[in-house]
Design a protein around this nucleic acid. Structure first.
Lengths: 187, 187
DNA sequence: ACTTGATTACACCGACCTGTGTAATTAATG
DNA sequence: CATTAATTACACAGGTCGGTGTAATCAAGT
């Protein structure tokens, strides 16, 4: 039951915004009483925290070559954009609508952003990139830029533009870009 | 008076979020009655629209070389990040917290994003860049990525990382980067 | 001094919000 | 059957919200 509440809250929070969705709405959507919801989550704030914690998914370890993993990020991003329910980064959205005063929300948001940056960085180190730290940061800028742009434009091709830029940055860092099956999307 | 209402609404909406700020709060902040506010703006929605319209500032024409103008964008961005009140892109924030159903808000947001992309594009054309369209898009990704990252991290150096990436992209497009006074920030 | 328009104070509406209290109901377990 | 725990319906408290109605006050301009 707790899981069902959480997944419904996730859907509604992400789709319509945290402030815009009341606990009554969530309970009604599931068909349970508001009392039951409060038996599982003592307050809306805790439900919000659980929602964000649930969105914090670490990328599973992969055995594919680092370059493919990095560039594949943008392919997954594009598929995400094209999927119907996409509405930007839940962490950025949460910070945007809950404001700067909410310390806990910002904390988990920066943790998520940093985890992705470190994921990039480690792959870049495997590739022998000199400034892995800096380049990893730049790649996250492309990712978040594409997400923000797609949020307002609803244009999944932003992910491809980001991928193009990422290729240039990687090439400039001395990384050899394999001509794997998708050599055609070089625009 | 109308101007005063608008500037106060701008401050509060941007700082705390649109949904988080009530009309009573705005009126109280100025020290006027709620009735007066409603005499100038028939509804909160119109006040929101005016707020966003006021944030839609076009970059003034400049006589500096295009490369400096482009890279200068990231310097201004960094100064913006460092300034106390910065809280991300008002348009992205508005779309994030008002949801996708609000058509008018998204419309002005994409107009703003597109205007900046076109500004980049025209400068790139002046530089003789072949794919000015594509590169302009990539530069906007860096800008919005830096904004999003700074929003959650509160780290103005994100603008510098974006500038670094922009330099690489420009160089890759054949643009000569003048060694103007800031040759030192090439990391 | 008279008129006109803006602004004020203030009560009020209906709607929605988070959260609680309570007593009845259901379902599983011994 | 009896016990226990979860869930239910439902009313309600206390608050905020957007927005309106009204009559009084204030500040001009003629």
């Amino acid at each position: 039951m707790k899981a069902r509440i959480l997944e419904t809250a996730d859907l509604l929070f992400y789709q319509r915004g945290i402030r815009a969705v009341g606990v009554d709405t969530i309970a009604a959507e599931i068909g349970i009483s508001k009392r039951t919801l409060y038996n599982h989550f003592p307050s809306k704030d805790e439900l919000i925290a659980a929602y964000l914690a649930g969105r914090f998914t670490k990328a599973p370890p992969s055995d594919k070559p680092p370059v493919e993993q990095i560039l594949g990020t943008f392919d997954r991003l594009e598929r995400g954009f094209a999927s119907k329910g996409f509405r930007g980064c839940p962490f950025v959205n949460a910070v945007a609508e809950l404001g700067a005063e909410d310390r806990s929300v910002r904390k988990i948001a920066v943790a998520f952003k940093e985890s992705r940056r470190l994921w990039f960085r480690d792959l870049l180190k495997q590739l022998g990139v000199a400034d892995a730290e800096g380049l990893a940061t730049q790649l996250t800028l492309l990712v978040d830029g594409a997400i923000a742009q797609d949020l307002v434009r609803n244009d999944p091709s932003m992910a491809r533009a980001a991928k193009q830029a990422a290729k240039v940055l990687l090439g400039n860092a001395g990384v050899m870009l394999g001509e794997g099956k998708s050599s055609r999307d070089s625009k």
